[in-house]
Design a protein around this nucleic acid. Structure first.
Lengths: 112, 112
DNA sequence: CCATAAGTTGGCAATATAGCCAAAACCTCT
DNA sequence: AGAGGTTTTGGCTATATTGCCAACTTATGG
């Protein structure tokens, strides 16, 4: 006994898989997209106008989210609509907000 | 009415704050650290041995997690112990696993 | 078929991350 | 103070990410 856990191949592979999902969510525009899609499906043109970046940029963000399994796309006519694939993603942000509050709180304490 | 939501300054700032936290979690080694810390506090040397990277590398990962508000550190003698600051972080991974299962499932469907 | 609109893809330049080594900073013990 | 163990920081290179433009694809409507 006393064998210490290691970041072996299997564990590493699992962490890399998780990291792929987290990376997909680790960008302001993509977080905005997820937040917006939580209210319902949106086409690329709508998201593009809201974000105010080039269409190609938004398209690449969406492709990344799709590849990570966070969103689904569906073409209808000229437009492509995206929607959240996994609703539980939203639970993330509750905790993220808790973290942010902690950070704020400790900054205030540092002053006092 | 009909005013479309925009990624304005305030929203952008909030998304950037969230992205900082997500970025901190968007790396295999850091995810491993969080997973390991969920079992209890660990010193830098323990984590370093488990991960198998240079101590300086692990130390920088920990500094990043700390800056993002995910972990706390405490020096005791020569060693510095780290622990999770916000337990709800762990809820993340349940959902991440759901996403990963979705991705796997759609790959299987693509074959059939 | 041609024009137009919506999205995607390729390519490039700017920026950000990651990881190692070396050096400094901290602690403990003698 | 000096030795040795633990952690952080600085600096550097290699790699990855981002965002724009331009070119291409796909669908609609005349």
């Amino acid at each position: 006994m006393g064998e210490r856990r290691k970041l072996d191949g299997e564990t590493k592979a699992r962490m890399e898989a998780r990291a792929t999902v987290m990376k997909a969510l680790a960008h302001p525009s993509r977080l905005f997209i997820v937040d917006e899609l939580s209210r319902g499906e949106r086409c690329v043109c709508e998201l593009t106008e809201m974000i105010g970046a080039d269409v190609s940029t938004v398209s690449k963000h969406l492709a990344l989210l799709k590849k990570a399994g966070v969103v689904l796309d569906e073409r209808r006519g000229q437009q492509v609509f995206y929607r959240l694939r996994v609703p539980c993603i939203l639970n993330f942000f509750g905790c993220v907000e808790v973290v942010l509050e902690e950070v704020d709180r400790s900054k205030l304490e540092a002053v006092s």
